[in-house]
């Protein structure tokens, strides 16, 4: 009797707990996504000033963005830097990840910490240091300087995601090919690289988006002649909160959304590997 009476009560109490937990979690998720979604209607506003919710809708701010020479120049410059960074970081990072995984060096905590160091060093220190070093060799504001700086910032991401992929590849496949007389180059090109391709692609996507969005180093390295999109946005927010920035924000969110989907799809291809790899955070 006593047991029967207590049971529904405990169940109710447990449910009550999980309802509170669910409601709290949904609120936190809304806090995370809300502000980002908010800028989308603002970008379609029809008035001369920023208003939310917009009283009328138009594409005038999109027209303003696409006809503004400075915004387009900054966008193209960022695309160039991010593409070159992704290429450099993917090549250097894939080679390093292969060496770290196949030699077993990557298992040491110290090596892991050294590889991740650019990711966890306070951004301002790396940024000012790079500003000092690159100004000594005249690379401030130059594509080369940005690519070098961004490459070092995104390399940990590439190494981590390619390593996760390589850990899932059986070295005996490589051994078998070698024992059948395949030269080293074709073992790597025809076995290791194709098998590691999803991880390499994830690394490249991480590298691209991290470089494209990187703000702190870009803040210091940008010059009037070589300005990235984040630096241009920084100046825009500093001076006035023009809806043109909402347009850029909407476009950037769209790019991030596509990349998150792409990475999720690639992660699905590689289900055997560590689930941690897709969660690696971007450098600031």
């Amino acid at each position: 009797m006593a047991r029967d009476r207590r049971r529904p009560l405990t169940r109710l109490r447990r449910r009550w707990r999980s309802y509170v937990l669910g409601a709290f979690s949904l609120l936190v998720l809304a806090f995370l996504v809300g502000p980002i979604l908010l800028v989308i209607p603002i970008s379609f506003g029809g008035s001369e000033f920023l208003e939310f919710p917009p009283k009328s809708y138009s594409l005038r701010w999109y027209a303003a963005y696409f006809s503004d020479h400075e915004w387009i120049a900054a966008t193209l410059f960022s695309l160039k830097v991010a593409s070159l960074t992704a290429i450099c970081a993917t090549i250097v990072g894939t080679a390093a990840a292969f060496a770290l995984v196949r030699s077993g060096w990557g298992r040491h905590d110290l090596v892991g910490a050294l590889i991740a160091a650019p990711m966890i060093t306070p951004a301002i220190i790396t940024a000012v240091g790079l500003y000092l070093a690159l100004s000594r060799v005249g690379l401030v504001g130059q594509t080369m300087g940005f690519v070098l700086a961004h490459t070092v910032l995104v390399l940990p991401l590439v190494v981590i995601s390619v390593s996760a992929s390589l850990h899932g590849i059986e070295p005996r496949l490589e051994a078998a090919a070698m024992s059948l007389g395949a030269p080293l180059s074709s073992v790597l090109a025809r076995i290791t690289l194709p098998l590691a391709l999803p991880g390499i692609a994830i690394g490249a996507a991480f590298a691209f988006i991290s470089s494209f969005d990187e703000a702190t180093v870009s803040f210091f390295l940008s010059t009037p002649g070589g300005k990235t999109l984040p630096k241009k946005m920084f100046e825009g927010i500093e001076w006035e909160l023009s809806p043109v920035i909402a347009v850029v924000s909407t476009l950037l969110t769209l790019i991030s959304f596509v990349l998150v989907l792409l990475i999720a799809a690639l992660r699905g291809l590689r289900r055997g590997a560590s689930p941690q790899a897709g969660f690696v955070p971007p450098p600031m």
Binding site: L32, P35, F52, D213, I237, V248, T253, F257, V260
Partner: peptide
């Protein structure tokens, strides 16, 4: 997705959103 999307969205987009708010 609600957690990863903000993570991969530019810091400036998020800062702009808070300035507007």
């Amino acid at each position: 997705a609600c957690i990863l999307l903000p993570l991969w969205t530019s810091v400036l987009v998020r800062t702009y959103a808070w300035a507007v708010l």
